[in-house]
Design a protein around this nucleic acid. Sequence first.
DNA 1: GCCAACGTTGGC
DNA 2: GCCAACGTTGGC
Length: 146
Amino acid sequence: MAYWLYKSEPNVWSWEQQKAKGAVGEEWTGVRNYLARNNMRAMKIGDKGFFYHSNEGLEIVGIVEVCALSHPDSSAKGDPKWDCVDIRAVTDMPKPVTLKDVKANPKFEKMALVTSMRLSVQPVTDEEYFEICRLGGLDNPPKSPA
DNA sequence: GCCAACGTTGGC
DNA sequence: GCCAACGTTGGC
């Protein structure tokens, strides 16, 4: 099982826009960082992840899942270095979990959101995933495939 | 708008 | 292959 976290600036691509794409989902284009790309290459269909608003909001606002495996990033103009997955919205976070909440909780001190602040696609551990879902008011969090 | 963190680039 | 310069990200 693997869980992830995707950062997006809401004035560029917001959770509302992501939800509007429905089950079709959308390519997570524009990642130009090797670590983040490698994370996407490691993803499997159905892997769940958090959708985080950076710059404005600074909170985890929903849960998405991978609906297409890593493929060439269509925004990379044929540059084979850059790949991305497609993701679709699964559910809102009933109570968005803020960066402040995460930083204030010792359970999350090792979380990439705290330690690797600038990484735009991050791994999330099972423990972190379920704890954040709990704080966010999600009683039955969707799980990644085993 | 500022600035710290950090990844990338390029000269040597 | 090292490392300084530079650009970008993102919290504040």
